[in-house]
Nucleic acid binder design. Structure first.
Lengths: 354, 354
DNA sequence: CTGTTAGCGCGTTCAC
DNA sequence: GTGAACGCGCTAACAG
């Protein structure tokens, strides 16, 4: 091989291989190598080959910081999510990762912890990195955050929810309508004393509760006594204990709309512990339709939301805008929801299998 | 206010506020502002105040790319995780975010999808960003990846598992021992026909199976017929269907060690559907002890691993090394595990509460 | 299709 | 305690 086959080492630490090194080895200028990397169509086939080989031989990796500084752009798409450790967002993130993989963009996650202030701070950090695009959760950004977003130069998509004043693009569904539909389902199935179990009341939860409340009122079955919430985040355990509290105060309850499936599962377990017949004595409806709800025994009715698709398409929308800024695109996409009604499939007879 | 109070706009887009702008406003040189930001103790109190005010007035935000280029460092800690959407890693990540918050570092997540090749690629990307530190999952890096890591100049911590040849630091536990302990628990409780239910057999799962197998063999109760796996990732639904398959082939099974709690929960539901008495007819043992296992009805025995602590301490270890590179620190931390044995707390009598 | 020149915004290294 | 000069690695804008 040539005069300089592998990354040279000076005093034990590797000296960075730069564009100039590659250029020198091939006998061209740095900019040509740069072009071969970013717009190969502008470089002759022969050079492309030689450059590619030199890059491999030298083990050259572009420096993203230098690239960002020189060009004023990055290939990072920033994603602001209330809780990266929440099942609901797991599905969204899975969709995002799927969509980002075939592209040259990278995803960078930020954890806002449901705090508008943290969201603002993270936004500042993200914007300082000149992202290629931004995903942000919900429609309840602080005034400051909205201002920052509006003056950002990259495409932005708000996810999880639809609403009247998109910053740029938007993909989600109406939490109010979804809760209203679930409530209607419970009432149609015969509930006269429906309850709502929430946990931490973030803005989306509040809109769900509004959908529940209005629907109940219209049917003449609303009572504020049948609402229970706490400031804590949802867990299965919390669902069980909230329900235990609630049912001891309001024993007439015949149906529960839960703010999410974790709470619903906890209620299911607590009901089993109390030998309550489901759904005869108690109808349970979750929210999100996590994978496990279909196989729970007894199975749990839930509101299916299209989280995976939402994640995937949010990234696709961004990438399309980034690569083709002037193309007209639908700005607001409502993915809707489905109330998935389930009944037990358990055998009525004795045990099987031995 | 002065000659230049707010970010100037040129043609509708904000011109970036730089160090020089702040410096000009205060009447000092750029480097002084830089120092005021990074080592305030080297700048007089008066100047500090004036500079801070100017920064706020101008809305100056440092450019991380320029900073990285000039200094050769960043404040990013890179985290490579097989699946950011897996419950197990959610707890780890929660711990990491907790630990990173009081520091000046940022976390950047990479999703390796359990693929050593993707891990290699992401590692290359991460290293090109000159991270302040790296977290990487497990001890099964490819040879190339190990080489890259070994010649990295930042501290590195391997998580989830302990083993003989740490790249740098390590925090985790022995999956072999944990599975062996759980198996012993099942055998001591009377199992003569224990089964192992896995899903995708990643390296950690394989070591768990080895612990199960060796323990069973020592007790004379091993049979390869009582092992079931698939290439798919674990879900609750998958647990139910794998168990349905397994029990129809091997009806004598009296205990199941599951590779994780999702599978265990699916098995629990499937067993309920078949009206099998738990634990009399079937003992179920999960792995990880997710929050929901304690409240499941009947409750499920599981192996508790200290994932949250692992995440938190991995970051703490890194930060300590970064800020104090020569301090001696324990390189390998074994967090251990606990077999949490559970029995039903359901009331034996009739339904309560109405 | 390829090269030249200039500079992105900041930190390092020295000087004062 | 503060400043001047230089360069990090790359790309934009123009030239040929």
């Amino acid at each position: 091989m040539g005069e300089n086959g592998s990354p040279e080492r000076l005093g034990g630490s590797v000296r960075k291989v730069t564009l100039a090194d590659v250029a020198a080895k091939v006998g061209v200028s740095a900019i040509t190598v740069s072009r071969a990397l970013r717009s190969p169509e502008k470089v002759s086939k022969t050079l492309q080959r030689k450059i590619k080989k030199a890059i491999a031989d030298l083990g050259y990796v572009p420096d993203p910081a230098a690239r960002a500084l020189a060009s004023g752009r990055t290939n990072v798409i920033g994603v602001l999510i209330p809780s990266v450790t929440n099942n609901v967002f797991s599905d969204v993130m899975r969709g995002m990762y799927e969509a980002i993989e075939p592209t040259t963009f990278d995803l960078q996650l930020g954890n806002t912890r449901y705090s508008p202030l943290m969201e603002e701070d993270l936004l500042k950090v993200f914007l300082s990195q000149k992202p290629a695009g931004l995903v942000i959760t919900g429609i309840d950004q602080s005034k400051t955050a909205r201002t920052m977003l509006q003056s950002a130069t990259c495409p932005i998509v708000q996810i999880m929810e639809t609403g009247p004043n998109p910053i740029d693009m938007m993909i989600g569904f109406s939490h109010y309508d979804a809760a209203a539909a679930a409530t209607t389902h419970l009432i149609d199935a015969g509930s006269r004393f429906p309850a709502f179990v929430g946990a931490r009341m973030d803005p989306r939860t509040q809109r769900r509760f509004a959908g529940f409340k209005d629907t109940c009122e219209r049917a003449g079955v609303f009572s504020r006594e049948r609402l229970i919430t706490t400031p804590e985040p949802s867990t299965v355990t919390l669902g069980a204990s909230l329900f235990a509290n609630l049912i001891s105060q309001q024993p007439e309850i015949d149906a529960v709309l839960c703010n999410n499936d974790d709470l619903a599962l906890g209620i299911l377990f607590e009901a089993q512990r109390r030998h309550m017949a489901i759904p005869e004595e108690l109808m349970i409806c979750g929210f999100n339709d996590l994978e496990m709800m279909a196989v729970a025994e007894p199975p749990v009715t839930s509101v299916r939301t299209h989280r995976h698709e939402m994640g995937r398409r949010s990234i696709e929308m961004l990438v399309r805008q980034i690569e083709n800024p002037d193309a007209e695109a639908s700005k607001i996409i409502d993915l809707g929801f489905d109330v998935i009604s389930r009944r037990s499939t358990a055998r009525r007879g004795p045990r099987l299998g031995s």
